[in-house]
Design a protein around this nucleic acid. Sequence first.
DNA 1: TATGAATGAGTATTCATTCAT
DNA 2: TATGAATGAATACTCATTCAT
Lengths: 214, 214, 214, 214
Amino acid sequence: MTGIERRKQGRAEAVNNLKRGLILDAARRVFERDGLDGASLRSIALEAGYTPAALYFHFDSKEAIYAELLKSSLASLATWVNDAVARARRPAARLRAAALAFFEFYLQSPRDLDLGFYLFRGGMRPKGLGQPRDQELNALLAAALSPIAAEAEALGATRKEANLLVVDTFAHAAGLLLLAHTGRIRMFGASASALIERYIDERIERLERPGEAP
Amino acid sequence: MTGIERRKQGRAEAVNNLKRGLILDAARRVFERDGLDGASLRSIALEAGYTPAALYFHFDSKEAIYAELLKSSLASLATWVNDAVARARRPAARLRAAALAFFEFYLQSPRDLDLGFYLFRGGMRPKGLGQPRDQELNALLAAALSPIAAEAEALGATRKEANLLVVDTFAHAAGLLLLAHTGRIRMFGASASALIERYIDERIERLERPGEAP
Amino acid sequence: MTGIERRKQGRAEAVNNLKRGLILDAARRVFERDGLDGASLRSIALEAGYTPAALYFHFDSKEAIYAELLKSSLASLATWVNDAVARARRPAARLRAAALAFFEFYLQSPRDLDLGFYLFRGGMRPKGLGQPRDQELNALLAAALSPIAAEAEALGATRKEANLLVVDTFAHAAGLLLLAHTGRIRMFGASASALIERYIDERIERLERPGEAP
Amino acid sequence: MTGIERRKQGRAEAVNNLKRGLILDAARRVFERDGLDGASLRSIALEAGYTPAALYFHFDSKEAIYAELLKSSLASLATWVNDAVARARRPAARLRAAALAFFEFYLQSPRDLDLGFYLFRGGMRPKGLGQPRDQELNALLAAALSPIAAEAEALGATRKEANLLVVDTFAHAAGLLLLAHTGRIRMFGASASALIERYIDERIERLERPGEAP
DNA sequence: TATGAATGAGTATTCATTCAT
DNA sequence: TATGAATGAATACTCATTCAT
């Protein structure tokens, strides 16, 4: 390949990625506007200024678009969590930061939560997004949560305890987010943020208290 | 209205309720068989031995059927929780029983969980099931969870603390159920039942430990 | 059922059959105009003055419409052949009449020939019109051809010889029709009608000539 | 044009023809694999290692590819028939060989028969493959069948009788092939090969019997 | 109370073809 | 010569809902 060709191809690839990105942006907007069920291939295409058929040059199927959206959502999540962790020093603070970052990411971005639930819903029904894709997304989620486990181990937890802490934290956060995003937490006069903080602090305290079972 | 007319009306209403019940049974079966997405009005009608149009004499819309299903699901939940509570004596045991019953109800009945999530999902998007219906369903959920609050107060918690306990328990259970029903809890080698028990026991222990903030 | 109800139902059924008939007529027109490939469900519906969705109340699928068309085409064929046979007296004349009627039916109605080929084409590919339907249609075709076999037996042929005569006649007629309807017979300066007549007459002559193998 | 230019052009043309051939090979494979309806331009292109658009540099349209395929199919047929004729000596045997070769070519190659029917089907509908192409293909078919006529004349038939024999033979063979390839000949417990042989032998016998009308 | 017929909007996906690069 | 992107029209079929009967 000559230099010119290389540059040409590079440019073409860049354009390509740009277009893919624009389509994904459109999908995000439609998704934001009409919810997951309203986000048909057709509406995504129109929002992006394309014919439905045109999307098939950039994505294999509607599900592929969803998967890509989820992937980038989970990537953002991971970045967000890692950034928060990086700003803290001591393990306890880092663990706390990771858990809170996870929670806050979804608290301020309901659509990402919807997407995440979509991933999970897929698992409820047999089809989902296809097994390989599913595993990839699971791995991304696990990666975003991994700092929690890592810092728990740094605080002296066993690998197993650390894993359980991840599960518990995820569960508690997910449940609170559900309540928060549907306005039902107000029914009880509670604040999701306050509750998740309290939950995490208790868990950390117990981790740090020596000579006690977790 | 004459006596005869009244009796006529009473009979008609009874028949009416019976038919509604049969339709709801059919809906439950379809829903169990095909999941939420596969449960079209058409398939519910056919399962019930009706034409789609006939259902509109008994329910205003497809959503109304869903709402009714949810209502009866929440009623079952309340019964289930109350029965569990009734089998225990001391407040701590009763609280424990209530929380575990809530969890177990949904653990063994994924379709009811789907319905519950559907209710909540409705809240995420603007439409939902209509505000009055929403409030009714919220009240039913709150009622099913009320024993938790009641027993917490019996253990000395303030009204506010009791409410927060309800929220926390609900959130933790919901999160774990999500993980359990999608098989993702296996990813972490954890058991949802064990985790919810541990969570509840800790909360109760803290409630009972005097002189400590919850 | 009361008399009134019976009459009501009878009327409803009549209307129903009428509408089915109108749709089939529309299908025939579209088919005539655009050929088999152009006869989409959509175009049939529009031609009939319906929305595509409406056709599904009268037919299960597009293929069901095709099958019905074929069925009625084969029924017409059978009637046509039987009528021709009935007008002749002696077996030889009846056989001749049957074979020529078969040929002429398709000679003057190219679209019915197309439909018939569609039935056959179905057999080439795995799918076809569904096996039960396929067998029903095969039976209709066989029935339309049955007078040929019957009269051959009346002329002294064995069952087996009679069957082979049917096959030969069908094949020769089908081949000539193909040539005729595509105008290719003119290439050879031949007349399909004359050729089929000659073919049949020879076969009959041989059947009648005693002491000779068929 | 200079010599160099001429050689350049010659080379370019050779490459061009080679590529056309490769595309046609791919088309044959796709066609064999997926049948006429499954053979989209897209799948042909992919099978050939091209993008769909690229095929338009080598063929005017999808129909043009089909036509080319047909052309080469008919050329194969002609070769096959001529080879068979060449192996026989006496006119009667040569005629017989030609007719049987025609039949056998299509008996063992259903896809070629499909293509042939496609050609003819085109004639049923107004469009077809375009008149000039149609005539070319007709001529190829006529050429493949010409030995039949030639040998018939060698046996003493007039030009006209010979032509009619070609038509009859073609028709009978085509009809039997239709029955054979759709499995319907089994319905009648008959064998296409046996029937075509018997038919040909009778015709030859009649040709040889002197003093009798054909 | 129930039906059967009908609508209109919608679904994802495929197709042959065109055109700027 | 070949590509990648795009089009526009088409495909069969499903959906919740309405309405005359």
